[in-house]
Structures are given as structure tokens and as C-alpha cells.
Simulated scan of single mutants.
Amino acid sequence: MTDTRALYAAHITRHWPDAGRYLDASAVPDGAAAAQLKREKKSHCGIGGKTALKALLAEGTDQAYLDELCELAGLQYLDLDWPTTAKDLSPLKKLRELRFLRIDSPRNIDDFTPLLELPKLEALLIENAKAMTTLDWLKPLAPRLRVFGIEGSRHTDQRIQSLEPLRGFQLEALLLRSTRIEDQDLAPLHSMVSLRLLNTALNAPRSQFKALERALPGLECDWFYDAKWKGFRDPRPPKA
């Protein structure tokens, strides 16, 4: 079973404990299993030769940086930290061992379907993807995705039409902070009996959360607690 807590912790901390932070790929030790590399101009050049890497936090990923890091065939954890300016995710298809992927602010990307060809992907976290308004493209990942997050930024909500495309998934954790679900319907989650953690913005009325709690009594969600609602009211109804 996927270690949901570990994957969620990786999302929160955005680094691995043994990952040194570097500003130039040449400084990354050849035998390093994990690293954080911030690109400054062409300082990423050479990262593709650090073949021992299993985990990489890449800051400032332009297309050239993405193309080269995708030569690291053994990568299992990849965090594309802000700002992500690459335009094409197709090179990621080379990362056949990838289990965990986070993409922060992919402002130039409108096609996420290359991610469907990552055969071992278990955890996918996407933040502030302005061009993504539907989750329909995600459906082929239903058999293997265990952790999914689609979140906005500190100042901008991520707008998603519906959670309906997630019906049939067996997620263990779903992260929806700084989101706005346009239809305000949590019913697609009722049959997700594997779900243990729902970390979400207030994007549905209280009655929806109560119904979800009845359907999944083992689920952890802050909005199930009366004290959480102090000072809050139901969001405005969806537009007809």
C-alpha cells in the first residue's frame, strides 16, 4: 500500500531530508540520491549526468532544464518548484520509474496528457495551473493514482468544473486547497472507500460535507467538525 503520510509530507515540506541545495549542477555529488537544484541561467547544465539521483526538487524549470532532467531515468520523486516555465511536458514520458510528481505554476502548459504515460505514478500534485479547468484528462490514471492534489496559489483559486471525473478512482488522499469546484458537488467521492484524507477549501455547502461524512465515516476532513464552521457559511450556490 502507498505510504500516504509520507507522500503528503513530501508535499508539505517540498524537499527530502537528505537533499542538499545547489545553484549549479556541477556541485551536485555524483553519488547523490537526492538534490535541490535552482536554475540560474544555464546552471542546470550537467544535471542529466547525475544518474544516481532518485529525487530532485527543480526550481525555475524552463524547457531546457526539463529536457535534461528527464535523462535521469531512475528518478522516483520530482518536484518542479516555482516558477515552471517549460511549455511541453512530453519529455517526462522518459521517467518510467516516477512515483511522485509535483508541478508548481505551469503557466505555459495547456496539455497535461503526457503524464498519463508514467506507468508507476502514484502521487500527482499540480498547483496554480491556470489553463486547467477540467479533470477529464485524468481518467486513465484511475487504476494507479493514490494521491492527487489540484490547488491554486496564495492569491488565486484554482477553478475546476466538477469532481465527477474522479468517480471510480481509489485515492487515499485528495488535496483541494485554494480551489473552487464550480458545481459544488462532493457526491463523486462517496464511493471512494479508500479515501483517508480530504484537505479542501470550502467549496461545497455544509449539507454536502455531512453527506460525505455519512458515506465515508473513516475520512479525515476538517469540514466534518462543527467548530470548523464558526465564522463560515455555505458558499454561494453554483450558477444555473
Score class of each variant (00 low, 15 high):
42 K>M: 03
24 D>V: 05
21 R>I: 07
58 A>R: 05
53 L>M: 13
52 A>D: 11
10 A>K: 11
8 Y>A: 12
20 G>T: 08
66 L>G: 08
37 L>K: 05
28 V>K: 00
25 A>T: 06
16 W>I: 02
17 P>F: 00
34 A>G: 09
54 K>N: 07
42 K>Q: 06
32 A>D: 05
63 Q>Y: 06
53 L>S: 12
31 G>P: 01
31 G>H: 14
36 Q>Y: 00
57 L>F: 02
28 V>C: 03
54 K>A: 10
4 T>H: 02
22 Y>A: 04
20 G>A: 13
33 A>W: 03
42 K>L: 06
20 G>V: 06
61 T>M: 15
41 K>M: 06
48 G>C: 10
31 G>S: 14
51 T>H: 12
5 R>N: 13
46 G>E: 10
61 T>V: 15
11 H>E: 12
18 D>A: 11
6 A>D: 10
58 A>D: 09
60 G>P: 09
26 S>N: 05
24 D>N: 13
3 D>R: 08
1 M>R: 11
2 T>G: 00
36 Q>W: 01
60 G>S: 13
62 D>F: 01
64 A>H: 11
25 A>W: 03
43 S>W: 01
32 A>Q: 05
43 S>Y: 00
43 S>D: 02
8 Y>W: 13
48 G>T: 10
24 D>T: 06
18 D>W: 07
9 A>I: 08
66 L>P: 07
22 Y>F: 15
43 S>A: 07
24 D>G: 01
18 D>R: 04
13 T>L: 10
7 L>I: 05
62 D>I: 05
23 L>N: 09
62 D>W: 01
9 A>E: 10
59 E>G: 15
27 A>N: 06
22 Y>W: 12
54 K>L: 14
49 G>V: 04
11 H>L: 14
34 A>R: 00
29 P>H: 12
28 V>Y: 02
29 P>T: 09
16 W>N: 00
61 T>P: 02
20 G>R: 05
5 R>Q: 14
38 K>M: 15
39 R>S: 15
50 K>P: 05
47 I>E: 03
62 D>P: 04
53 L>V: 13
11 H>W: 14
30 D>P: 02
15 H>F: 07
24 D>F: 02
21 R>T: 13
1 M>T: 12
37 L>T: 07
19 A>G: 07
63 Q>F: 05
66 L>I: 09
57 L>S: 08
6 A>E: 10
16 W>E: 08
3 D>N: 15
23 L>V: 07
10 A>V: 03
7 L>C: 09
6 A>V: 05
54 K>T: 12
41 K>R: 11
39 R>C: 13
24 D>A: 09
19 A>W: 00
2 T>A: 08
62 D>G: 09
26 S>W: 00
3 D>G: 05
45 C>D: 11
58 A>N: 10
12 I>C: 10
4 T>P: 00
14 R>G: 04
14 R>T: 04
47 I>N: 02
24 D>R: 09
30 D>K: 09
10 A>T: 12
25 A>V: 04
58 A>I: 08
22 Y>H: 09
25 A>I: 03
6 A>G: 07
26 S>Y: 00
28 V>P: 01
23 L>I: 04
61 T>Q: 01
8 Y>V: 15
64 A>G: 12
39 R>H: 13
12 I>L: 14
61 T>I: 14
